[in-house]
């Protein structure tokens, strides 16, 4: 995997890494992709239904439509780095 692709991947995840870190990552990619290739060679793997949940969760119930938990404004803003007029403040969002 070339560095340019890796940098683009990092950019999409909204962080940057330094050059050596990309080298390590590149090695890791080679390893994992090789291992995943082996998985791809398992007989009829493409015919297997993916298992997303550990086991079928039966009788899952939906929530009744009740208003129960709301946060006080102080709790909403407690951890925000910046706030104004009871709202979380960020640099201007330009669409």
């Amino acid at each position: 995997m070339d560095k340019k692709t890796l940098k683009l991947l990092a950019k999409k995840l909204m962080f940057t890494m330094n050059e050596e870190e990309y080298d390590t990552l590149s090695e890791e990619f080679a390893t994992i992709l090789k291992q995943m290739d082996l998985i791809g060679k398992i007989d009829n793997i493409d015919k297997v239904e993916p298992l997303i949940y550990p086991f079928p969760l039966e009788n899952t119930l939906m929530r009744e439509d009740e208003v129960l938990d709301e946060l006080p404004i102080d709790d909403i803003l407690l951890n925000s780095g910046s706030s104004l007029y009871n709202q979380v403040k960020v640099p201007k969002v330009v669409e």
Binding site: A10, L13, F15, M17, E21, T24, L25, E28, I32, V90
Partner: peptide
């Protein structure tokens, strides 16, 4: 600000895992 927070906030290992996952 998001990029700065995430760049400084995560160690290298975490970033590598996120990139692989993504």
């Amino acid at each position: 600000i998001i990029t700065d927070a995430r760049t400084k906030g995560f160690s290298e290992l975490i970033k590598r895992r996120f990139i692989i996952g993504s």
